[in-house]
């Protein structure tokens, strides 16, 4: 086991600087949870809508990218809508223009006590992409199903820490290189991912999400142009930054 992330000090420094930068502002505020904004925190919503925009950056493994070490940024638009006392709808767009993922789902959440909340949900996603690079005209699409569970802990000073686990299921993956169908034998139960997200006040009425997602999967949708053939779960570290509006 290799603590690889710690060998990328930028991520650690970034998280610690952000925690430090906002610790003073949060010290002065201690709002009840009903008045706080959150996206990841598994707690019943008080407002009808919560929206977040941000970025994800996923590092692709050498096994797939070979000599190039890609850290692929993607625009991230996330919205949740309260539809019941403990139920909300969850929609998300991950945008890279040439390849995009849209997911929609539902999530049930409840507070176990004043500090701890839990949630469970399911999301269905569709991804598609087109690449015309160095003579390779490729296209691909596929469906995902992502059942998930989450647990959250509310610290003082409006700091919300969430842990979420997803099962990643891939269906109907279709990739083409030119006119040739690339038929690869991906598993339906492709793997899992684990997200740790920190949400806290930022500036004005906005909140900030800082998160890290560890994906262990034999197929990650952003790597479809590589037509990789491995039938083993590879590690995709993903950094998440979001601004809750």
């Amino acid at each position: 086991m290799t603590p690889s992330l710690l060998k990328t000090p930028g991520i650690c420094v970034c998280i610690i600087i952000c925690l430090s930068a906002f610790s003073k502002s949060t010290a002065a505020q201690n709002l009840p949870i009903e008045q706080q904004k959150f996206i990841y925190f598994p707690h019943p919503m008080s407002s009808k809508w919560t929206t977040s925009i941000g970025l994800t950056a996923t590092t692709l493994p050498y096994d797939i990218t070979e000599e190039l070490h890609y850290r692929v940024p993607a625009g991230d638009f996330h919205v949740i809508r309260k539809v019941g006392n403990k139920v909300n709808l969850d929609g998300r767009l991950s945008i890279q223009l040439l390849q995009n993922l849209a997911t929609v789902g539902a999530r049930w959440t409840t507070a176990l006590n004043n500090r701890v909340s839990v949630g469970a949900g399911n999301e269905v996603g569709y991804w598609f992409g087109f690449v015309n690079f160095a003579g390779f005209k490729s296209r691909g699409s596929g469906w995902q199903n992502i059942p998930n569970v989450a647990i959250g802990y509310r610290f003082n000073k409006q700091v919300l820490l969430s842990f979420r686990a997803d099962a990643i299921m891939n269906f109907n993956i279709k990739t083409f290189a030119g006119n040739e169908r690339v038929t690869t034998d991906y598993r339906v139960f492709s793997g899992s991912s684990y997200t740790i997200a920190l949400e806290q006040p930022f500036y004005g009425n906005r909140n900030l999400t800082l998160g890290f997602r560890a994906l262990y999967t034999d197929f990650f949708w952003q790597t479809w142009p590589a037509f990789e053939s491995f039938d083993r779960n590879l590690f995709f570290p993903q950094l998440i930054i979001g601004l809750i509006l």
Binding site: M1, T2, P3, S4, L5, L6, I11, C12, I15, I16, L19, S23, F155, V159, L161, F163, Y194, I196, L198, F212, A214, Y216, R232, N233, F235, P237
Partner: peptide, 22 residues
């Protein structure tokens, strides 16, 4: 504040483990 640092570092340690295949 220390609690937050500890949690963040602990989580990074837990989730940054990359499995080495052989």
């Amino acid at each position: 504040m220390m609690k937050q640092y500890c949690v963040a570092i602990l989580c990074m340690l837990i989730f940054s483990c990359k499995k080495k295949y052989e």
